[in-house]
């Protein structure tokens, strides 16, 4: 079975989690998620970022870069912090429930 929908939902929150430590630009986020095997192509990060911005969970700022033209940095908004906190709680319960059933426990 394809994990497409499940993965897409989870990756959006992984992006929020990566931004907890401070603002980052797209290239950094793309390589972290790609190396972790969470996105197939680095390019698919950018539609996700666009959607997170439309939802108001991240916003962006142009900053000068040491070499080359200015870069767009992404950072968490207050709404993004809240959405991430709510997801972490729901995800914990969801993961435990799935794990329990996958292990074949009868008293689930």
């Amino acid at each position: 079975m394809d994990l497409g929908q499940l993965r897409r939902g989870a990756v959006a929150y992984c992006i929020l989690a990566l931004l907890r430590g401070g603002e980052r630009y797209g290239w950094e986020l793309a390589s972290v998620l790609h190396d972790a095997g969470l996105i197939a192509g680095e390019g698919t990060l950018y539609p996700l970022l666009a959607r997170l911005r439309e939802m108001g969970w991240v916003d962006t700022e142009w900053k000068p870069s040491p070499h080359g033209p200015p870069r767009r940095y992404y950072r968490l908004t207050v709404a993004g912090v809240q959405a991430l906190a709510a997801f972490i709680e729901r995800w914990g319960r969801f993961r435990d429930a799935v794990d329990q059933i996958l292990r074949g426990s009868e008293d689930a």
Binding site: Y25, G26, W27, A30, E42, G43, Y46, P47, L49, A50, R51, R53, E54, S65, H67, G68, P69, R71, R72
Partner: peptide, 18 residues
């Protein structure tokens, strides 16, 4: 959305080339 994605990918390529 289209403009933002294109800008980001263009920047991604610039950063990679640098």
């Amino acid at each position: 959305r289209r403009r933002q994605i294109l800008e980001d990918v263009r920047q991604h390529l610039e950063a990679a080339r640098a």
